[in-house]
Design a protein around this nucleic acid. Structure first.
Length: 774
DNA sequence: TGCACCGATGTTTTT
DNA sequence: CATCGGTGCA
C-alpha cells in the first residue's frame, strides 16, 4: 500500500520516513522536495496522524492546493482536513476566529499595499509633513520592516537606537506616523499584510490559552521555502512547534530571494542551532535539468560566500549548452525569443507551455509581449498589475468591503464619490477631521450626522444620507442573498457599469469585461466552496482576493501558452525551455542591489533560481541598449554571464540586421567571442553621457486594455453574441468550449446558461467574451 | 464640486 | 513612458 516509497531515492526516503522531532530538509533545486513533502504528509496520515493535527505552510495557495490533491490521491478524502496554505491565509483564518481577543471585528478587512500607501499618504498630509522627505512608499517599507521584526509602536518609542536611525534619515516623525497608521488601521477594522503575522504573534504571546489550543492542534508542522521566512513568521512557527517539536522545515539557502521583504536567510542557516537534536536531510540529486544546466548553475552559485554545504548533481543527460544571445535592442531581443520559440516548437513538436520567459522586472514584459503577439504566439503574463488591483475591480470590491465592514476607511474613501455623487474633497476632509476627533470611523460619523458638530450644508448632507441608506440597503440584501447575487445587485444599483460605458472608449469595454470576470470568479468561488462544504460568504471571498497570488489564479483549462513572469514568481516552477532575458548590468543585477555583498549575493541566487527553472534548454539574452524611462540607454552584459564557467556556454552569433539603427551598430560584426573579452565595468555611476535619444520608431504599441489581459489570442467582443440561440456552440476565453442550454432576460440583462467542460455557467451576454463556433 | 490639463515622479523583486 | 496628484477654470 505504500509502494510510493519505493520510488524515492535513499535521501528522500529517509526524509519521508523521519518520525518525531525537529528536522530540516535542505532541498536543492529540482530535487523533488514537493514529492518528499507530499509523501511525508501522506505517510504521517497512514501512520495514524489525524489530518486535523497537521499544519503545512506553503509559499503560494496554488502550491497548497496541488499538494492537497496529490496527498488525497494517496490517502483519499481525508486530505481535505489538512491545514494547508500560505502563512498569510492560514493565520488570517485563525485571526478571524480569535479576533475578539485582539479587539478586532471578525470581519476585519485586509489592506493591500495600495490601501496601506493611500492611508499613509493621507496621514502624512494630515500631519502637514513634507511629502518629499516622507515618501509614502518608503515610510510603509520602514513600518513593514518594524512590524516584521515585531517592533510595536510602543517598542519603537522605547528604543532610542531606532528613533535615532530615523532622525538620521531625516524622518523624525516616523514613530508618530507609525502610531497613527496602526491606530487608523485598527479603527478601520483593517489589517495589512504584516499585521496578519504580527497580530498572530500578539495573539499567541498575550493569550497562553490560545497558544495552547493551537499548539495542541498543530502537532505536526511543515514549512516549505523556509529560507524565505521572516522573523515574524519564524516566531510563529517556533511558538506553535514548541510543545510537540514535530517541526519539519524545507528549503534551499541558495534560493533565498526575498530578503527585500524581510526574509531572513539566517532562519535556515541557524535552524540547527534553534532546535536541539535536529536531524538534517539533504536532497542533492536534481531530477529536473540537464547536466549542463545543473553544472552551469553550480558554477555561478559557487561565487557566493554565504551558503550551506551541499553539492547538487544530476544523472540526467548532458543536454545542450546554455545559449547566450546578444541583441542590439530590447525589441530585437523579443524578436529573438519569439523566433526561437516558434522554431523550436515546430522542430521538436512542442507546445507553447513548454516555454517560459523570465525577467528581473515586470516592465520588461512589454517588449517580449510585442514580439510574441506579432508572431501570434499565445502567452500569459503573471504579475504586474494583478487583476484585483485594477481600478474598476477595486471599485467594485470597495463597495463589497464597505458593506461587510463599514469601518473600512480606504474602501469607503474610494467609493463614497464613485460614481460621482457630489461628495468632494472638502466634505471628506471635514468628515475625516470629525472621525479622528471622536475616535470613531467615518461611517460612524456618517450615521450620526445630526449628533456631530460638523459644518456641512444641507445639500451635501442629503447626499451623504442617501449614500448611507444605500450601503445599509446593501447590507440588508447581503443577509438574504449569496455573495454573487449581492455583488450583482451592488453593481446594478451603483450604476458603475453605466458610468464606465458613458465614456465609450474601447478600453471601457475591457473594463466592463473585467467586472463581468469578477462576477464569474465570484460565482466560481461559491461553487467550489460549496462543493468542498466550506464557507462561501462574501467576506471569505474578499479574504481570498486580498491574499491571492498571481499564480493562484492560473487557469488550467486555457489553451497552452508561453509563460511570461518575473524570476521571483518563477520560483518553484519548471519549464523545458527557459529564456532569461535582460541579462545586463544595472538591470540584472539590479542597480539598486549592487551596493553590498549580501545584496549582490541575493541577486546571484536569483540568477541561480532563473537558470535552474530550465529542464532541457536555457537561453540567456541581453541587449546592448534598452529603453528605460522612455530613453534609450546603453547596456553592458551582466556579470552573471561571465560568472558561468565558459565550457557550459554557447555564444550565438548576433543576427545581421540591415534595418538596425546605425547609431547602434558599433560592434555588430564582432567575431562572436567578444562577449568573452568584454570588460565589465564596476556599478555604473549614473552614466548618462552615452545616452542616445532615439524615437521608438518601429515600436508597436498595443491597445492599452490588452496590456495585462492574459491572452494574445483573446477573442474580440462582437455583437454577434447577442443573437445567441439555444444549442449554439460557443467558445469562452476562460471556460473553453461550451453549448448554450438556455437564454433568459433581454437587452442588457440577457443571460445565457452555457455548459462548459468545467460546469454550467450563467453569463451576461453583454460582457461575456464569447465566440460562436457552431 | 468637477473636469481638463500639466508637470513631477518613478521600476527592482511580493504576501 | 505612464501614472498620479495638483492647479486652475467652469
Amino acid at each position: 500500500m505504500s509502494n510510493y516509497i519505493d520510488n524515492l531515492n535513499p535521501a528522500q526516503k529517509e526524509a519521508v520516513l523521519h518520525k518525531e522531532g525537529p528536522m530540516i530538509i535542505i532541498a536543492g533545486a529540482g530535487s523533488g522536495k514537493t514529492r518528499v513533502l507530499t509523501y511525508r504528509i501522506a505517510n504521517l496520515m497512514q501512520n495514524g496522524v489525524d489530518a486535523f493535527n497537521i499544519l503545512s505552510l506553503t509559499f503560494t495557495n496554488k502550491a497548497a492546493r496541488e499538494m492537497k490533491e496529490r496527498i488525497s490521491k494517496v490517502v483519499g478524502a481525508e486530505a481535505k482536513n489538512l491545514w494547508m496554505g500560505t502563512f498569510h491565509s492560514v493565520f488570517a483564518r485563525i485571526l478571524r476566529s480569535e479576533a475578539d481577543h485582539l479587539g478586532y471585528p471578525s470581519n476585519f478587512t485586509i489592506y493591500d499595499t495600495q490601501d496601506s500607501v493611500r492611508l499613509i499618504t493621507s496621514i502624512i498630509k494630515e500631519m502637514n509633513l513634507d511629502k518629499d522627505k516622507y515618501k509614502p512608499k518608503q515610510v510603509l517599507g520602514r513600518i513593514s520592516q518594524l512590524k516584521n521584526s515585531l517592533i510595536t509602536v510602543r517598542a519603537y518609542f522605547g528604543n532610542s537606537d531606532l528613533q535615532e536611525a530615523d532622525m538620521m534619515a531625516k524622518r523624525p516623525k516616523l514613530g508618530e506616523i507609525y502610531h497613527q497608521y496602526v491606530e487608523r488601521c485598527f479603527k478601520s477594522g483593517a489589517m495589512d499584510f504584516d499585521d496578519l503575522l504580527l497580530r498572530t504573534n500578539e495573539l499567541l504571546t498575550r493569550f497562553p490559552q490560545v497558544l495552547a489550543k493551537y499548539q495542541d492542534r498543530f502537532r505536526y508542522i511543515l514549512v516549505d521555502e523556509y529560507q524565505d521566512t521572516n522573523h515574524s513568521q519564524y516566531l510563529i512557527v517556533r511558538a506553535l512547534a514548541d510543545r510537540f517539536r514535530n517541526i519539519c522545515v524545507v528549503g534551499d539557502d541558495s534560493q533565498s530571494i526575498y530578503a527585500f521583504r524581510g526574509a531572513n536567510i539566517q532562519n535556515i542557516l541557524n535552524f540547527q542551532r534553534d532546535y536541539e537534536g535536529v536531524k538534517i536531510y539533504k536532497l542533492e540529486q536534481n531530477y529536473r535539468s540537464s547536466k549542463n544546466i545543473v553544472e552551469a548553475a553550480n558554477s555561478v552559485i559557487d561565487k557566493n560566500q554565504t551558503k550551506l554545504d551541499k553539492t547538487i548533481w544530476t544523472a540526467n543527460e548532458r543536454g545542450g549548452l546554455v545559449k547566450v544571445m546578444r541583441t542590439h535592442s530590447e525589441s530585437e531581443e523579443g524578436r529573438f525569443v519569439a523566433e526561437r520559440i516558434f522554431e523550436t516548437k515546430m522542430n521538436e513538436q512542442l507546445s507553447n507551455n513548454d516555454f517560459a520567459v523570465l525577467y528581473r522586472t515586470n516592465a520588461q514584459s512589454r517588449a517580449i509581449e510585442d514580439a510574441l503577439r506579432k508572431k501570434n504566439i499565445p502567452y500569459k503574463i503573471y504579475g504586474g498589475l494583478s487583476f484585483y488591483q485594477r481600478k474598476e475591480i477595486k471599485d467594485v470590491l470597495g463597495y463589497l468591503r464597505v458593506l461587510i465592514n463599514p469601518s473600512d476607511e480606504e474602501a469607503l474613501k474610494r467609493i463614497i464619490n464613485y460614481p460621482a455623487r457630489g461628495i468632494g474633497q472638502t466634505t471628506m476632509d471635514k468628515l475625516t477631521v470629525a472621525a479622528n476627533h471622536y475616535k470613531r470611523s467615518i461611517f460612524d460619523v456618517l450615521q450620526n450626522l445630526d449628533k456631530v458638530d460638523i459644518k456641512i450644508n444641507t445639500g451635501t448632507k442629503t447626499k451623504l444620507e442617501n449614500f448611507v441608506t444605500m450601503i445599509q440597503s446593501f447590507q440588508v440584501e447581503a443577509k438574504n442573498k449569496n455573495a454573487f447575487e449581492v455583488a450583482e445587485h451592488v453593481i446594478k444599483q451603483t450604476r458603475i457599469i453605466k458610468d464606465i460605458e458613458s465614456d465609450g472608449t474601447p478600453e471601457d469595454i475591457s473594463r466592463i469585461e473585467n467586472i463581468q470576470e469578477l462576477l464569474n470568479g465570484l460565482k466560481d468561488f461559491i461553487d467550489t466552496q460549496e462543493e468542498k462544504g466550506e464557507d462561501a460568504s462574501l467576506s471569505y471571498f474578499l479574504e481570498d482576493v486580498a491574499l491571492a497570488t498571481d499564480l493562484d489564479s492560473d487557469k488550467e483549462d486555457d489553451e497552452p501558452k508561453v509563460s511570461l513572469l518575473t524570476i521571483h514568481l518563477a520560483k518553484g516552477l519548471e519549464f523545458p525551455h527557459v529564456f532569461v532575458v535582460g541579462l545586463e548590468e544595472n538591470l540584472f543585477p539590479s542597480a539598486m542591489s549592487m551596493n553590498t555583498r549580501s545584496e549582490l549575493e541575493e541577486e546571484r541566487r536569483l540568477f541561480y533560481v532563473a537558470l535552474t527553472r530550465a529542464e532541457k534548454q536555457a537561453y540567456l539574452t541581453y541587449a546592448q541598449s534598452r529603453f528605460r524611462w522612455g530613453k534609450l540607454v546603453d547596456a553592458e552584459p551582466s556579470r552573471f554571464i561571465e560568472e558561468i564557467d565558459e565550457k557550459f556556454l554557447d555564444h550565438l552569433a548576433p543576427p545581421v540586421n540591415p534595418r538596425a539603427n546605425p547609431f547602434l551598430d558599433s560592434g555588430l560584426f564582432d567575431d562572436g567571442s567578444s562577449s568573452k573579452t568584454v570588460r565589465f565595468k564596476k556599478p555604473q555611476t549614473k552614466t548618462k553621457p552615452n545616452t542616445v535619444n532615439v524615437t521608438p520608431s518601429q515600436r508597436f504599441t498595443p491597445p492599452k486594455n490588452l496590456k495585462k489581459v492574459s491572452s494574445a489570442t483573446s477573442t474580440s467582443v462582437g455583437t454577434v453574441q447577442m443573437n445567441l440561440e439555444v444549442g449554439n456552440k460557443v467558445e469562452h476565453g476562460r471556460f473553453g468550449k461550451g453549448i448554450v442550454l438556455n437564454i433568459e432576460g433581454s437587452g442588457a440583462d440577457k443571460k445565457a446558461e452555457i455548459k462548459f467542460p468545467i460546469g454550467v455557467k450563467k453569463l451576461l451576454l453583454q460582457f461575456a467574451k464569447l465566440k460562436v463556433i457552431g
